Simulated assay, not measured.
Amino acid sequence: MIRDFHRAKGGALLLGAAGPGLTGPFGAYGAAVRDDGDMEIEVLLVDNCAHEKAAVAVLRRALDDAGLKKAAFTTRVIADQAEAERAGFTGSPTFLIDGRDPFADPDRPPGLACRMYRTADGGLAGVPDAAELRHALEVSAGLEPGPSPSPPRPGDLSGG
């Protein structure tokens, strides 16, 4: 279920349609429709996620800091284990950029759980650091990345 729309595109709501070459609710969505640097960005959540507002805020900040102020994103609730497995969802919130989780841990199985992210000082937070998310967005958009966030660390953690 798509929970929210976060931008108008061409005067119409962006409905989180599939992607280039795929079919959405209004027909084919071709690559020519996408703006320069435009990406499919989605925040996956469990229902009533305690970090939903923080996730949306950190994503908006990272997009703005990357110069992607017009970029759209959707939020989607993952309702059950089967949907978690189909989406590769390993905890709430999960950020997908063009269908890829930039914070993925290949050893973590899909499931309905809270997700924790390591902070630069080694602590834990319910959302990733804005600089790390900005860096992932810049790389995916083909932009010249700004200063790199802290050195790569082991993946984030999921908790119950």
Rank of each mutant, 00 (worst) to 15 (best):
L63R: 10
D64E: 12
D64F: 02
D64R: 14
D64V: 12
D65W: 06
A66K: 09
G67A: 10
G67F: 10
G67N: 13
G67W: 08
G67Q: 09
L68T: 07
L68P: 10
K69R: 15
K69I: 04
K70S: 15
K70T: 13
K70F: 07
A71D: 09
A72F: 03
F73V: 00
F73E: 02
T74G: 08
T74W: 02
T74Y: 00
R76K: 13
V77N: 07
I78M: 03
I78S: 06
A79Y: 06
A79I: 10
A79W: 07
A79P: 10
A79F: 05
D80M: 11
D80V: 08
Q81C: 02
Q81H: 14
Q81K: 15
A82L: 08
A84H: 06
E85G: 07
E85V: 15
A87G: 04
G88V: 04
F89Y: 09
T90K: 13
G91K: 06
G91E: 03
P93C: 05
P93E: 02
T94D: 01
T94I: 07
F95S: 01
F95I: 06
L96P: 06
L96H: 05
D98N: 15
D98I: 03
D98G: 12
G99F: 00
G99C: 04
R100I: 12
D101S: 01
D101I: 00
D101E: 08
P102R: 03
F103G: 06
A104Y: 08
D107L: 12
D107E: 13
D107F: 08
R108P: 00
R108C: 10
P109N: 01
P109I: 00
P109V: 09
P109K: 15
P110V: 07
P110Q: 08
G111K: 11
A113Y: 12
A113R: 15
A113E: 10
A113F: 14
A113D: 10
C114P: 09
C114Y: 06
R115D: 01
M116F: 13
Y117K: 08
A120G: 14
A120V: 08
A120C: 09
D121F: 03
D121T: 11
D121G: 11
G122Y: 05
G123P: 09
L124C: 01
L124I: 11
A125M: 06
A125C: 03
G126P: 11
G126H: 10
V127W: 09
P128H: 08
D129P: 12
A131P: 03
A131T: 13
E132M: 09
L133T: 02
L133K: 04
R134L: 01
R134Q: 14
R134T: 00
R134I: 00
R134C: 03
H135W: 14
A136V: 00
A136N: 03
A136I: 05
A136Y: 07
L137M: 02
L137S: 04
L137T: 05
L137A: 01
E138C: 11
E138S: 07
E138A: 11
E138L: 12
E138R: 14
V139T: 13
S140W: 06
A141Y: 04
A141M: 07
